[in-house]
Write a protein that binds this DNA or RNA. Structure first.
Length: 556
RNA sequence: CCGCCCGUGGCGCAACUGGAUAACGCAGCAGAUUCCGAUUCUGGAGAUUGGGGGUUCAAAUCCCUUCGGGCGGGCCA
């Protein structure tokens, strides 16, 4: 929380608590909350202490509130006065100095305003996108990318040591399938009557890889053993695909600290070790030749670890991977951004980790629902040109990256989302990104205008700041003060949509302020204070846009 | 059959995680302004928060139940 805000709330809590002690003695009283009421008539902050204590003190809330107010002392605090309202709330009104100090605080902290040490430097790894390297990324990956990247930024701002990670599934069944598909496409170039099985990859990219491979090696692999040929094709195509994922994501402004390969878990023997550890834990059994994990010990359905043919199922490397994150690399917490279709698998992972003596609550999964693309009011399922599902790259051809990143962070992950393509490209105030960027550009322009008029803007004094008394001004300042807490809430709930909502709301409050309060051609002291307010709004808007990795244009 | 998630004005959505009269934006109605940046503002209308029970000072929020939608429950990933 911003120091000023937390200081004021602390003062409120202390005043009320000591008043209560005076009135009711040294009883142990339950903690209460200080919140900003939805209706501004109810003061700057409201405390629900009297309501909470009604039961233990055996008095009516309003009587308790009355006695608290009689014994309360506001000396040397930001609190100016208080009143009792409704069922027993204590509404508190803060001094001019409080509002002024908030603005000075923002000016002082600048690009660091909004940051806090809430996370205490705990190490968090956020894994997101993790698309199969066997083909291009789809729309779901676009949402996961924007959500994961922004959530990482939010956690960072809330004081966590964050690392972004991409898990590359470069082993297992889908790689087999990838090899098979490449192989058939390659042979197709030299042989007749090649049929692609139903469950192989049919994409254009596979054909392109096969052709590129043939241009280098010609037909010299045709007569080699199938396994050797497939391996050569995979070794050729997979690094290219991974490189492609990197460049596409970079275009989307996402850069990872770590690209973690599944194959490294097999090479290091960690996958094997996990099976041994699970067997040792006593939570496994054999049935029909397969090795099962007895997840019913952990309130979850049993599942197979190693098939009867000796090949581990996909869960094993996944368990090993999460074990690696939490126990080998010792992250305090691991966060996975997953499609909602994976929800059934999270409890299994947690059950296995518990069996391995890892505190499973250190793993959190953020599940995100499907995205639909909407154009002209209709859902579009495939690209008109190719007829295939729309990829991340084609989406970014259609809409600005700013819009894509903002839009995907507009709804909480766990809700279905229709992405309105028309709105995303539109340059009107209906488009939230545009609206927010416009507010920022407008402030920059106001400041430029003032400067070109020869107005000298200085650090405002307390007297100047106390002139900001209009309802719109007060509301705007109070909203600015809420940023730090908003970021912390967002980090707590893994919901980055709070941040975009905050940005839109701030832009709205700024426009409302600006409609009522002139900044140009007014008295010097008031002008200086209002200009400072404008600048602080710009600072906050910019800090948010930077977190979202969205441009903050000074002119539009 | 079992499990998870979601149901909020016509539409899109919010509600500080249990707080005061359920906020905001489109669309629609009435008006003002057309002046620092493309406008913006004011007023009114529209909601039994899917339905029904319960918990308590207080429920959109928690519990039970029911209806509707999405997704899972493979020796697929």
């Amino acid at each position: 929380m911003s120091q000023i805000v937390s200081l004021a709330k602390e003062q409120i809590v202390n005043s009320i608590t000591s008043a209560a002690k005076k009135a009711f003695g040294e009883n142990e009283l339950a903690p209460f909350s200080v919140e900003t009421p939805s209706n501004r008539e109810h003061g700057d902050y409201a405390a629900n202490a009297a309501l909470i204590w009604a039961k233990s003190l055996k008095k009516s809330p309003r009587d308790i509130a009355g006695e608290i107010v009689n014994n309360i002392n506001f000396e040397n605090t930001y609190i100016e006065r208080c009143e009792i309202a409704g069922p027993g709330f204590i509404n508190l009104f803060l001094s001019d100095k409080y509002y002024g100090d908030i603005l000075l605080d923002i000016e002082e902290k600048g690009e660091n305003y909004g940051r806090s040490d809430y996370g205490k430097g705990k190490r968090v790894v956020v894994e997101f996108v993790s698309a199969n390297p066997t083909g291009p990324m789809h729309i779901g990956n676009a949402r996961g990318g924007a959500l994961g990247d922004c959530l990482s930024a939010v956690l960072d701002a809330a004081g966590y040591a964050v690392e972004r990670e991409f898990y590359i599934n470069d082993a297992g069944n889908q790689i087999e399938k990838f090899g098979l598909s490449l192989d058939l496409r390659y042979r197709e170039l030299y042989e007749d009557n090649i049929e692609m099985p139903e469950d192989s990859y049919h994409g254009e990219d596979i054909i392109a890889h096969a052709k590129a491979f043939a241009e280098i090696h010609g037909d010299k692999y045709i007569n080699k053993p199938e396994s050797e040929r497939r391996a050569a094709l995979v070794d050729f195509a997979l690094p290219k695909n991974i490189e492609g994922l990197k460049t596409d994501l970079k275009k989307y402004r996402i850069e990872y600290d770590t690209w973690f390969k599944e194959s490294s878990l097999h090479q290091s023997g960690e996958t094997k070790k996990i099976i041994e550890l699970l067997v040792k834990s006593g939570h496994t059994y054999e049935s029909e030749g397969a090795l099962w994990f007895k997840a019913t010990d952990f309130d979850c359905e049993d599942f197979v670890l190693v098939r009867a043919n000796g090949v581990p199922t996909y869960v094993v490397p996944d368990i090993a991977y999460h074990y690696n994150k939490l126990e080998v690399r010792k992250f305090d917490r691991a966060i996975d951004i997953l499609g909602a279709d994976h929800h059934g698998y999270v409890p299994r992972l947690k059950a296995a980790l518990t069996a391995l003596n890892v505190d499973a609550s250190r793993l959190d999964a953020v599940l995100m629902q499907m995205v639909r693309l909407v154009k002209d009011g209709e859902v579009i399922k495939a690209s008109k040109r190719s007829g295939k599902a729309i990829t991340l790259v084609t989406l970014l051809d259609e809409v600005p990256i700013d819009a894509a990143r903002f839009f995907f962070n507009l709804r909480e992950p766990n809700s279905h989302f229709d992405f309105d393509l028309d709105l995303a490209v539109s340059e009107s105030s209906n488009n939230p990104v545009y609206y927010v960027q416009y507010a920022y550009a407008r402030i920059c322009s106001i400041i430029r205008n003032l400067e070109s008029q020869g107005v000298e803007l200085s650090r405002p004094t307390d007297e100047e700041l106390s002139l900001l008394k209009e309802k719109e001004e007060r509301e705007l300042i109070l909203y600015l003060s809420a940023l730090t807490d908003e970021i912390i809430q967002s980090a707590k709930t893994y919901d980055s949509a709070r941040i975009t909502h905050y940005a839109v709301e701030l832009a709205t409050k700024f426009h409302k302020f600006y409609a009522v309060c002139r900044v140009k051609d007014i008295d010097k002291p008031l002008q200086n204070a209002r200009a400072a307010l404008c600048k602080d709004v710009a600072t906050v808007l910019k800090n948010i846009l930077t977190m979202l990795k969205i441009t903050a244009p000074e002119k539009m």
